[in-house]
Structures are given as structure tokens and as C-alpha cells.
Design a protein around this nucleic acid. Structure first.
Lengths: 161, 161
DNA sequence: GCACAAATGAAATCGAAATTCATTTGCAAT
DNA sequence: ATTGCAAATGAATTTCGATTTCATTTGTGC
């Protein structure tokens, strides 16, 4: 690791070491804030911008890549040997992963057909996960209803959503 | 269209009508700014927030959905009957599209396997498009080189990227 | 040790997204 | 056509994540 950085002209500092290892201890889909919190558990003095810059650095050297699901927060995924896609549950806001040889094959087939050189892909399926499906079924049985705001009310910017 | 809105409790206004039709005149991957510009060509008095809110409304009623490629700008895609994926060229920053029955099938297969109810999916392949591949080959032949900044220089936040 | 580029931390800045608020407008019921 | 009122509008503002600035400190090669 240290060598990977050195050969590219980067220095190794205590903060950097801490940030890197913290990133790899956390799972996938790490946001800057999450990483920052994790790092601060160990060393209170590390600055936010240092965490941010090092997260970018981790990407730059090819150990992670950005993931965007559209909630306004960029997350970072460790680059593994097996590419994967994401299932995102709209109810519980959680990520699930899936690996699929088939997806990879399909992606390259599609790219090939258009003379496109693929360098990476992102596959995201939005929906509702098993747990939440169960839960909402139960809620329906118990007769949960009560809508408080009309569609129009929600659409206008009059209240926090 | 007018009816679709009415049934959901929304009113039709001149601005809304203009914004909706402008959105559908523009192609895919429309940003708020693009739509705003388009709308202002016709009516100088329409406000930015009105455009923004109506673009959200278009999504809310299911006629469009957000697309995020990670460049910090949210774009909106018209929802068509045939779902599609995106090819994004890292060189020219352009989008290309592809349709594929196979992708859809694969997506639902993956979701099924995990008891996940899919409501939508996003497939993005990043890479380099045909044109840019050609261009970079040519550049190489002409001996373009010259690096001005080290990796470390680019990684630190000292200069605009 | 010395030189010097790289790295750091605090604060400032940027920009897209979202909201506030005073005012206007669509439209359903008179 | 008038009226009541929620929805819609536009300008300005706020929010908030991402990114940069800058003065200072720190690694590394010599």
C-alpha cells in the first residue's frame, strides 16, 4: 500500500494511513461524513478536508470509485475483483448488493455493439426489499391509512419532505 | 395531460403548460438549467423555482425520472415505454443510449432472486465512445505528450481540475 | 540537517438543490 | 360573474455537500 502511493509520488502520513485503513474497515458505500466520523474516533485532530482529499486519493489510485444513487450524497465503493450492482430499497434506504457474471457479460456486449470501450459500469435497481415488502403487507392488514397531505401539497415547496 | 394533473389535484397554469411542453421538446437528460433556458426563450418572466418545481412535478406524476451520473448535476429523463441504459463517454461527456430487452430481463431476474420488488433500474456504462477512441488514436500518432503536473500535484487541492 | 514539494487543518467559497414568503391565479361552488 | 381558498408563482434566501484557499507543518531524498 505504502509502496503503491510512493511510486506515484505521494507521501505517507499518519493521517493518510489512518484514513486509508478506516476506509477499508468500513464496508461498501462509504460517504465522506461516515469516514470522517470513523477517523475522528481514533484521532480527533484530523480535518474534514484531509479525509475528503484522501478519499479522492483512494479513488485516484484505483482502490475505490464513486457511487451515486441520487440522494445527493456521493459514496465510495472499494474496488473489488468482482464487479457488482446495487439494489436500493426506497423504503429503508438501504443498499444490497448482487454479483452477477451475467451482468458483466451483458454490459460488454452492449458496449461492443456501439464501438464503445467500457471502463466501468454502474447498475442500480430501485425498489422495495424483502423486509419492507413484508412490513408493508402487515401494515395493510392492520388498516394503516390516514393521508395527511394531498399530492399537490407535497408537490409545492411548502413543507419539508 | 391536463387531465392527468387535474385528477391528482394539480392546477394547470400557463407556466406549467409551457414548462411541460418544453421538457418534452427537449431530448433526454434534461437539466434544470437547460429547461429553464428553453422556457425563458418563450417567456422571460418564468422563474427558476417554478421550472424546478414543475420538473419535480413531472417526475412525481411519473412522466420523468432523475438520472445522476455524478457530475453534480441532476438530469431528468422522460419515462418511455422502453426502458434504456446509458453509455457515458468520459472524454466528450456525452450520453448515448441503448435499449435492450435483455437488460430488463436480467434486472428482474436479479431482483427476483433476492425477493426484491423492482420499481426501476439505472444502468450506466462509463468509458470512451467510438469517436473519442478514434480521435485519441490520431493524437497518439502525432506524438502528443507533455505532462505538466505530477499525480500528487493534481491530487492535492492546489489547482482547478 | 537541509531543501522543497506534498500534506494538513481551518475557514472560506462554490453551486445546485430546496425552501420561504408575499402575492397572484386557477377553479369549483355559488 | 363573483367569491373563497388552496395551489402556484417569482424573487430572494437558505441549505448543504463538494471543493478550494492559504498559512503552516511534515515527509523524503539528498
Amino acid at each position: 500500500m505504502k509502496e503503491l502511493l510512493k511510486t506515484k509520488g505521494f507521501k505517507m502520513t499518519p493521517q493518510r494511513e489512518l484514513i486509508f485503513s478506516a476506509f477499508f474497515e468500513l464496508g461498501e458505500h462509504v460517504s465522506v461524513d461516515e469516514l470522517y466520523a470513523k477517523v475522528r474516533e481514533v484521532d480527533e485532530s484530523v480535518g474534514y478536508s484531509t479525509v475528503w482529499r484522501n478519499l479522492k486519493l483512494i479513488c485516484r489510485v484505483g482502490l475505490a470509485e464513486e457511487v451515486n444513487i441520487g440522494d445527493g450524497v456521493t459514496r465510495y465503493d472499494r474496488v473489488t475483483h468482482d464487479p457488482h450492482g446495487h439494489l436500493y430499497c426506497r423504503e429503508c434506504k438501504q443498499f444490497f448488493e448482487f454479483d452477477s457474471e451475467a451482468v458483466v457479460d451483458l454490459m460488454s456486449a452492449v458496449a461492443d455493439r456501439q464501438g464503445f470501450r467500457p471502463e466501468g459500469f454502474k447498475v442500480e435497481i430501485d425498489g422495495v426489499c424483502r423486509q419492507c415488502l413484508r412490513k408493508s403487507k402487515k401494515d395493510n392488514r392492520n388498516g394503516r391509512s390516514g393521508r395527511s397531505r394531498t399530492d399537490a401539497e407535497k408537490a409545492s415547496g411548502q413543507a419539508k419532505g
